[in-house]
Amino acid sequence: MHFSEYDLRAALKRKDPGAGFTQRVMARVNQAESKAEQPERKRTWWWSRMWSLHPVLAGALAVLLVVAAASMGFVRYQQAAQQRQEAQKARAAEQQVRLALRITNTKMNQVLQRVNTQPRDNSIRRETL
């Protein structure tokens, strides 16, 4: 394809940009700047974006989190209370064991002592020791 000199002159001839050229240029510049600012938007928190997008859903999620945390706290409290109760029961049982062994030991010694020290004429003794 060949271009004649006339064609080239016509193509490179000075043209009037028309009215509003400056505004169009400034608009494009602003558009470019706004594109450059877009990465900063990523820094915003996901929940705040979600809050702005779906306030009901975010609210429900927040309530759910609070309920879950409260439930876990209640379960932990109940477990601790149960452990305390078990420990108290065990301590009471241990005290009962002490008392039982004290009585048993005392009475056993008492009986054996009676058998060994009672005068024979007033008592009947039988030992199979």
Partner: peptide, 28 residues
Amino acid sequence: KLGELSGHFGIPDDIGDKPKNKPKLKQR
């Protein structure tokens, strides 16, 4: 073992004058 607990674990020692040779319990 029960007899040996005397004087331990809050259990009082043998009461009164214990005979020196405390009889051991055996099956007749």
